[in-house]
Design a protein around this nucleic acid. Sequence first.
DNA 1: CTGAAAGCGCTTACAG
DNA 2: CTGAAAGCGCTTACAG
Lengths: 333, 333
Amino acid sequence: MAVPESTTGRRVTALDVAREAGVSRATVGFVLNNTPGQTIPANTRERVLRAAEHLGYRPNSAARALASGRSRIILLVLPDWPVEYRLRDYLDEAALALDKAGYSLVTYTSHPAQAARPLWEALSPDLVVSPVPFSPPDVASMLACGVREIYPEPNRPDLPDVSLATSAGPELQVDHLHERGHRNLVFAAFPEPRMASLAAARHQAAHDRARSLGLSALDLQHIDYHDGSADRVVRRWLDAGITGVIAVNDDVAAAVASAAVRAGLRMPADLAVVGHDDAPIATMFVPALSTVRIDTAALGRGFAEFALHRIDRRPLPASRTRPKPTLVRRETS
Amino acid sequence: MAVPESTTGRRVTALDVAREAGVSRATVGFVLNNTPGQTIPANTRERVLRAAEHLGYRPNSAARALASGRSRIILLVLPDWPVEYRLRDYLDEAALALDKAGYSLVTYTSHPAQAARPLWEALSPDLVVSPVPFSPPDVASMLACGVREIYPEPNRPDLPDVSLATSAGPELQVDHLHERGHRNLVFAAFPEPRMASLAAARHQAAHDRARSLGLSALDLQHIDYHDGSADRVVRRWLDAGITGVIAVNDDVAAAVASAAVRAGLRMPADLAVVGHDDAPIATMFVPALSTVRIDTAALGRGFAEFALHRIDRRPLPASRTRPKPTLVRRETS
DNA sequence: CTGAAAGCGCTTACAG
DNA sequence: CTGAAAGCGCTTACAG
């Protein structure tokens, strides 16, 4: 591909392409954008495409956004959670599917102190989505910046769940231990601020499931090395008749499993643990950790479908079913 | 703050502000942008500011980018590494410092299959930075998209290091074990594809340091549960006279420590392990993991200074010294 | 089927 | 000190 602008010092515009192809600027736009309702003869189209390719033409995104009123950017606002393993698969798949439709996905985690300007001011995205609801000031700010689609919408919480923080995973953890005969369970997390809201959400889901199975309340307990060591915590659990531990993620499961082994317990006979996310450590750890695997790639594609539905009014696929998480049973359950 | 556009359905523009303040559109721009060389009387300035505030005016970023030729966006391209813990601190600090200078930071990890259009096409960033070099096609693509500053620049590898993947951490791991009398070391990682390039970089740095201390070659060894269990690997190390393990991160350190304890070894007397990143598991694990902590917040600020130097030609602070990592000694060394 | 032209909302010399 | 005006590079009715 030639890079003429590097020699002329000027960026290639649609006018350059038009001249090279011997058509008008408008025609270039019609061809390159596949504008519906325009019937361009095959050989004109061909000439334009070739000229664009030859000149290395890239439309100016700012000019396009200004003229069309749409930036073709989708902003995904992520909460400040410890990034879940395999989030990349989710984002990769979503970005790929959106790209095919001409949209770019940008992710953003707001500064904890809210000190910096939110990214939607700089990007004017067509759609802003988040797994957690927006505050009213955030919504007002987005509207002022011309964002036309926001999800979840204020006052409309009754919409499909596109987030990674589904309740199906924790439910599966509970079901699994229940099936294997465990009746006394706890929910374990690190006392880490960043983990707090994720732990709260997953704990809630697990708790609700436990209750609906007729189990007793599922306490959220912290594995805190500082105040007495994991070993002592595990000992306490055993004394209280606990036989199964639901960990908020695989790191926590590893810490629990490690303490249990050191205490001379057999796993899963004396104590069972189930992690979440199927992170690398779940396979590498000895004993290998039972965990929950989420089809994040499928979730990512689902997110893209949803986003396109909101923006382009594309119909949602009829077969739109949330991929179910699967339990990977290894040596700790 | 009033949100008039939500009632009129039209976004507030500089013209609205000008009318409300009783000045021209240009003056609005001068005041809001603090344009140098313009001397605006205090009360005009005051009127404009008040009108903008009152109307909830947000400049249209696309129009601004088109007119000025600068998007005020900085794109940070991150490699597909397992996201290092505390990366958030780095990004938060960098975003905050850049925000003060009127720039927005966007991060981007390219799709592994290179299938989606790169984000610089949609954003036209003023600067694109990455901790790893760009491929020639990437550079050509950026130039075609009007990106004027790229770092690292092709053919100029001799520039300051702004990345998180510094060699100082691995060097510190080696120094620490060396000081504590260890002479036979290995470097451990999971055999995970995504970890490969990070492991290679850190291993290289550790290896070089080991050689310069007169130690023997530092092998990169995989903790692979599938082919024989971590326990067997640890046993092999002991037989080979290894007394110290340098782990690529804290997850790997946890897996090693766990195997060592299970093998009946005393830590650190029989075997020492040092992790990297000071992730939550390093504190929560028993035994608590010795590790390397990097002042990622300071690194993030350093990144912002560097970016502003490149874009706005701001002088680099004279006292510009890279924050040194520190070794956090706990129970495994 | 294709082109001439207005317009998107800013920035920025240039006058006065 | 402030305004009128050109221009950034597209999109999109509107003519022909």
